[in-house]
Amino acid sequence: MTFKQSISWLIGSLMLLLAVNAYGHSLSVFAWVEGDTLMVETRFASGKIPVSGTITLYDGYDQKLSDHPITGEEVERLPLPNWESGLKVESSTGDGHDNYWILTPDDIRQQRDQETQ
């Protein structure tokens, strides 16, 4: 991980923490891109990492692209799908716990550019 990526991750984790604090009830989701990998962090309000559930990816037209099981990893690493219209990353653990993170095409382009610098 480059310095810039570390800073992105740190900022993202901080946002995730703030989101956890603000939404006691909901799940918190944060996603970013490293190269051709989509990185997804999902947390309960307690900070616990869910051990089961589903990450669903949608394109910018809200068309479902794929489902991926939550495996209990701190950061789930998924292959980056076609992202030209952007991505919605939705995590669901059942029991009414779900939330999402939006990556616009510019977000993804900038994050990929950061890595190549």
Partner: peptide
């Protein structure tokens, strides 16, 4: 997502605060 991209291009985004407009925390 296209509208969020428009928000990202704005010079100013006026928020109400107090967690109104919950989507703001998801992008």
């Amino acid at each position: 997502i296209a509208l969020i991209a428009d928000y990202q291009q704005a010079d100013l985004i006026l928020l109400n605060g107090v967690d109104y407009a919950q989507w703001v925390r998801n992008a």
